[in-house]
Amino acid sequence: MKLLKYYTYALIAMLYIPIIVMILYSFDNSKYFGEWNGFTLRWYEQLLHDTQAWSALKNSMVVAVLSAVISTAIAIPAALMARDREKDIVSLMIYPPVIIPEITEAVALMLLLIYLGFPLGLVSVLIGHTAFNIAYAYIALSPVGGTGARLAVAARTLGADRFTAFLKVTIPVSMPGIIAALGLTFMMSFTDFIKTLFTKGPGFDTLPILVWNRARRPGLTPYTSQPAIAALATTLILISIAIALAYTLYEVRRSEKQGEL
């Protein structure tokens, strides 16, 4: 049993050590990774004036927000389908994108976009993200979808028309699932690298792409020194943690009010 305990500790250490080391070196007053020259915030100050990073953050946000909203909106009607047999078929069709290797999806997307002669840029990246996010949104919504549809029927027996039932019952009842779907798809999109790389045009960078561009050719400019890259990557982690935390807080408060789903 003791062995198992140490094994678990070692496992957790392996998960976190690289990230902790990276975060530490983002505060390192040196141009090179691994050479500790004292604490500094200069890499973060530098980020504030880094127009490339700001533009990449804006691109990431725009793509992630739009993709989350669009994919969730598209997935809601599918998740609400009340009839179980049809629902089973939809569920069966919707899972494969989740298990197909991302690189395959990315290549397939790229080939299709080139075949169609579609201009590569924000819109192509958005389409790519959204197409696959629909599957994740559906999965996040399906636990509440059946309930939402069932309760809408109850609302109609009480005199509500279809639209009122949808607005006053289905949407609020499905809200935990909608929030989960928005959060999940936002994160999938915000942190995506491979699909973005294959569907973006020249000059359109998201944060993960910028990290990659700089990390593979480090050290040439102040922005591409190793601690500067560490600071940029740490920022990316902080944004992700903030969103996950906001979601957790929402879910805790909701379940206190409404009970477990």
């Binding site: 069932r150 309760l151 029927v153 109850a154 609302a155 109609r156 027996t157 009480l158 005199g159 509500a160 028309d161 006053k168 019952v169 609020p172 009842v173 809200m175 409404q258 009970g259």
Partner: peptide, 28 residues
């Protein structure tokens, strides 16, 4: 349409609205 029939329906699984309290459920 069901909403125009002036019926009351008590479902086998009740179908109460979890996002509303007792008052608002009855007031719906």
């Amino acid at each position: 349409a069901p909403e125009k029939r002036n019926i009351g329906f008590v479902f086998q699984d009740l179908a109460l609205f979890p996002h509303l309290n007792v008052f608002e459920n009855v007031a719906f």
